[in-house]
Design a protein around this nucleic acid. Structure first.
Lengths: 217, 217
DNA sequence: GACTGTGAAGTAGTTCACAGCT
DNA sequence: AGCTGTGAACTACTTCACAGTC
């Protein structure tokens, strides 16, 4: 029952939230057990990978039967550290920041909006989804109030590093960066990046490999 | 001048847009040449990786000097197939879809908004950023008009697969899926996925590894 | 002297294939 | 019989280290 937990490979970690989502669905459907084969199908990967991934959690399925859905869901939440909500603070109340703040999907999945801050005084005080934009100077207070929080950078690339520094100074230990810029943080801080244009460019690459486009402007 | 182009590894492809962004910056700053060491620093990777990545493009830098920024930028655009704009069509005019449609960053980086469609009649006709929402039945026409386009799925997860099927039927060959659901498409279609909550959960994992949180509710 | 391009070595991730439990 | 858990084989990616060029 322990889980002599070896270090979980990054590639596995990146898949755990997908399994989590599927398990939530299965619970909703009152499905009591699931085999690696089925889970693999639902996740779009192969069964050996599922079994190996789950084995890192110290999970014990039952041979001949499969995995107990409730218990696996419990373990998955435990492993991901999503047994409680993690509030998020959005920095930047431009289009993207407002969009993210409005996006209810976050709250539903355990990441409620704690606040939105912006350096631009003309934006401060305006409504964004469920909150009002607050000045950057409120950041420290906001973080202290909700800690631990995840900071979301939704500013132009040019100020992303500065914002990251301010988040770290305010006590934020996990950052999701949507700005198209390299951001570096101390090693104790977790950082991930999402760049929407970059994803489109990757699609562009694979697509133009198949069916090269005329290059005439 | 040829570039006896070996197949480019996926990991390299995923980094090319980052190099592209950096090169655009360097051109703006009128910097004529760049060494792999410097490029690596700007991209947050190591120099050997940069050199190997660029070598897949059939790029020739100059030993003792570095890479010509203009030429490298040209090659990068060529490789990524972003020498012309790729219009995007957003499916789903909910919070996320409207957010994406409003997000100017796309247009600036070569992905202008061709339209927004939604299955919900009460949303059809409403303004979203620069366009009006059109009904799903206009999808085929919209695609035909702008082809090739990239389809963006910004719907609830439950209808994501159906939307993907409709996009494919309408002639879309590249899809970016923001819905939290597995979507499968024929092998000739390029597909990528961005799941915002999933990114937050990954951060949650790494953070709770460091500083486990009390589990009391 | 400086910097690229790349084989070779090293590391991480995936998949196979099967022993072992229920 | 059915399905997990995992060593072993394989594949992909990264990094080293250095010969080659300017």
């Amino acid at each position: 029952m322990d889980g002599h937990t070896r270090r979980i490979p990054d590639a596995t970690v990146a898949r755990l939230p997908e399994y989590l989502r599927i398990l939530v669905d299965l619970v909703d459907q009152r499905i009591p057990t699931v085999a690696s084969e089925r889970l693999a199908e639902l996740a779009g990967v192969n069964a050996a990978k599922v079994r190996k991934d789950l084995s890192y959690l110290g999970t014990y399925g039952t041979r001949g039967v499969g995995y107990d859905v409730d218990y696996l869901l419990f373990q998955m939440r435990q492993a991901l550290g999503v047994t409680q909500d993690w509030p998020v603070i959005v920095v930047g109340a431009g289009n993207l920041g407002r969009a993210l703040a409005n996006y209810a999907g976050f709250g539903e999945r355990g990441f409620p909006l704690a606040g939105v801050v912006d350096a631009d005084d003309t934006k401060v005080g305006t409504e964004v989804g469920p909150v009002r934009v607050r000045p950057m100077s409120d950041l420290k207070e906001l973080v202290a109030e909700h800690r631990p929080v995840i900071g979301i950078i939704a500013t132009p690339g040019a100020v992303a590093q500065q914002v990251a520094d301010e988040l770290v100074a305010a006590g934020v230990t996990a950052i999701l960066n949507f700005a198209p810029a390299l951001v570096t943080v101390p090693p104790s801080i977790s950082l991930r990046k999402v760049d929407l244009a970059l994803e489109l460019q990757i699609l562009s690459f694979y697509q133009s490999q198949r069916e090269p486009r005329r290059d005439s402007a």
